[in-house]
Design a protein around this nucleic acid. Sequence first.
DNA 1: CTGAAAGCGCTTACAG
DNA 2: CTGAAAGCGCTTACAG
Lengths: 324, 324
Amino acid sequence: MATRTTLLDVARAAGVSKSTASRVLSGVDRNVDAELAERVLQAGERLGYRVNAVARALRRQTTGSFGVLVPSIRNPYFVHLVDAFSQVASRSGMGVILADSLDDPDVEAERLEMLRDSFVDGIVVVPTSMTRSGPAIRQAAERTRVVQVDRWATGAGCGFVGVDNAAGVAALVAHLRAAGRTRIRYVGAEQEASASAERLAAFRELAGPGDAEMLLPHFSTTAGRDAAHVLLAAPELPDAVLCAADVLAVGLLSTLQRRGVRVPRDVAVTAFDGTDLLELVDPPITALHHRLDAIAARAVDMLTGPASTEETRIRAELVVRAST
Amino acid sequence: MATRTTLLDVARAAGVSKSTASRVLSGVDRNVDAELAERVLQAGERLGYRVNAVARALRRQTTGSFGVLVPSIRNPYFVHLVDAFSQVASRSGMGVILADSLDDPDVEAERLEMLRDSFVDGIVVVPTSMTRSGPAIRQAAERTRVVQVDRWATGAGCGFVGVDNAAGVAALVAHLRAAGRTRIRYVGAEQEASASAERLAAFRELAGPGDAEMLLPHFSTTAGRDAAHVLLAAPELPDAVLCAADVLAVGLLSTLQRRGVRVPRDVAVTAFDGTDLLELVDPPITALHHRLDAIAARAVDMLTGPASTEETRIRAELVVRAST
DNA sequence: CTGAAAGCGCTTACAG
DNA sequence: CTGAAAGCGCTTACAG
């Protein structure tokens, strides 16, 4: 904690100008005499020089960091998403600042404002609500670059990168039909998220006479168990279930099995949001695996590239496992 | 995303100097003529002025933000801890930057370096390992203020704020003794965390002839269930259990109950790290409730005050519930 | 290839 | 009470 070594200190120690020291240390200009460069590097090392990120940011007019705001950091799916952003960021030498909206649009608005006024070049946001998140996002987008990821909010007025939900549902349904399933039950939850709404709409589009849907109050393992109880109470079981989220599928599967239902023989189980969770259960669950790295890479491109309100859809990959 | 409004823009629009505009807008100097102040405020509002945090930070030599690095953001206890820091921060107009070490000392070292070279005045860290986190923390502490929270690492060479584990164990044991319990089983887990080591040491100090201990490979609900199975397999049950973490207690309680053990009649159950989790089960579990807000407040004081390697212990509060 | 100088947007002694 | 000026630590045209 002694007073920090500055670029000037290094330059003096190496007997060069600040300009030259900067060129060497920032690695931005290769045209420096090898011997001078070596002297600068040595001096920097010896004095423990670290560039002052604040000064650099002011001069360069960019912080090299972006914020990532997710509805809830406790949801494993978002943890994976955040991981994907961390990796894309570190690959391009950027920093990421993480924040959580506690699933509340008001907290989200406050966090957006906080992020926009802090040390970021832009913000990636997964909106908490399709209907209520728009205004705050639009406001943030007036001052800094904002990209919506995974879910969008109406009136946000900024770009979006997410999964192609319609294609995903179509792939799952086609897979189930090919296995002869005609009584598919769609199990979804609250419709605050645009992704949920899109999945349900796509399912309705494709539903046949034997298919049906069920909506739960929220996405959780417990809700999945409840769904299983509802299915078990009905006179006839469906022959397949399409869960809008992996946590639902895990809860549903275990309860069905405990009650003697054979998966996949009696009921095939499938899900969206394929995280590791789905491989931990027995049988592992067939699911759409989101290309989170591709989503993150594209979002960062949009954040750093020219402004746009473009919408990018990335196809999820169907991973067939023993549950179907 | 038009070019940002600067202080100079506001000053011109209000017909004053940058100095005056700054004094009004930063709210740091009350000695400004009321009418001028009003004009500046109006102009700022009209132009949508927001101070440039980077420029302010460079000039003030402080960012007004600090980093919080926890072992795992998925652990509910750390989520609570992070919440406490967020609140203390916003109360004093500071920002907090959140990071996660994935329970890995190597990742921790990398994150520490990243935080120290970014836009923070200091770092709060919950070390992943008592034995392995020291060097990286010490290194970070050479360049920026660092405070350890909840756990400490040997050789870290910086301040610490945490729970008084010895007093906590003593309170729990006294509570159980007062209820006539003489065969207490301490259920702990890995000893990488200083808090675990302290709790176990304190228990050994107080243990009577009927007491015993059991160490599990890790802290989790599953480990708690495993512990219950071990207890059930023995010829005689203990009459009380002291769990070193709440997740252990929850898993243990449910498995004991499923096997017909009555809580608290047959076995009283108690825990450390009292989060909401403990109130969700039936019976709710008696536990030490950590004063996370006090811990966070003290840590931020140490971060912003003069450097010190002081150690502060904050007493946990014993919350008696139906499990004892 | 190198250095002197300007300037990023603020804040704050300093002089008036 | 107000403004002109300096300066936080960098980077980068610009001139040589």
